[in-house]
């Protein structure tokens, strides 16, 4: 049943810049449809702020608004991407809230994700981890015919399960250690499981884990808050695989592994 005039009290984290001190500011929005997405509700607030010229609009990252680009990510009432399972913030709808609710909106909080402004954080640390080894080295001119290496369906499916990660950083935000092990585990699993990725498997895991530690992400707490909050429902088995590959690389097992 669609409601057309819901009302909310929003407590939103405002912070001018990385170095400025942040604080919560309170705003009211009304006439919100229950079919509205959370970000569309923030659009309504921003329209209101510009029209009334009382405060600058709230900055928040967003782009595709269909749950795949990984750009949006808000900490809503203490949960990354809010109180629905398996969705990003842009796919969270106001029908998940009650009319009159108070809602607390914060940026991701992690040492490796410093705040840029308001609800926008810097996630370039994820790019740096990928640059450390999150790829298979190929040359455009020198690859084999696509069907020359068969890949068992169940392997391809598992690789795809891991590859669905959108790099939004909810796993880091959910973890009390701000660990990136689910993100790294998913990429390592995706590539190391495929025959094409095997040659570089040990170097890959070593380089990515070292980079992850260097950038200030914490270790796994084994509480799996990451799995619970992941909008793409990436499984914690990826962390187990990461640990297994990491161990193999530490033991110096040869590359035929």
């Amino acid at each position: 049943m669609t409601l057309s005039n819901m009302k909310f009290t929003l407590h939103i984290w405002r912070q001018e810049s990385a170095k400025a001190e942040g604080r919560f500011e309170t705003y009211m929005v009304d006439n919100v449809s229950s079919d509205c997405s959370f970000l569309e509700m923030l659009d309504i607030l921003n329209e209101q702020l510009v029209n009334d010229a009382v405060a600058h609009p709230v900055c928040f990252d967003n782009d595709c608004r269909e749950g795949i680009c990984g750009m949006c990510g808000l900490y809503i009432n203490g949960r990354p991407h809010g109180n629905d399972d398996g969705v990003t913030t842009c796919q969270l709808h106001m029908r998940r809230f009650h009319d009159g609710d108070e809602i607390w909106v914060e940026p991701w909080r992690a040492k490796a994700f410093p705040v840029i402004k308001d609800l926008v954080v810097d996630r370039s640390a994820f790019d740096k981890i990928i640059q450390a080894g999150g790829y298979i080295s190929t040359t455009v001119g020198g690859v084999a015919e696509a069907n020359s290496v068969p890949v068992a369906k169940h392997i391809a499916d598992k690789a795809m399960d891991a590859a669905e990660c959108i790099g939004c950083g909810a796993c880091v935000a959910a973890c009390k250690n701000a660990s990136a092990m689910l993100f790294v585990g998913a990429k390592v699993s995706h590539l190391n499981m495929l025959p094409q990725g095997r040659l570089e498997a040990l170097d890959r895991v070593r380089n990515m884990v070292v980079k992850m530690d260097e950038l200030g992400f914490g270790g796994c707490t084994n509480t799996y808050a990451c799995e619970a909050e992941c909008p793409k429902q990436i499984k914690r088995q990826n962390i187990a695989r990461l640990n297994r590959w990491w161990l193999a690389s530490r033991l110096g097992r040869d590359r035929k592994e």
Binding site: V140, V143, A146, P150, A152, D157, A159, M160
Partner: peptide, 18 residues
């Protein structure tokens, strides 16, 4: 050919073919 080499997990048949 290139995307498969890069590790793009395309859908597969049970025989392992694309």
């Amino acid at each position: 050919d290139l995307c498969v080499a890069q590790g793009v997990p395309f859908a597969r048949e049970y025989g392992g073919q694309l």
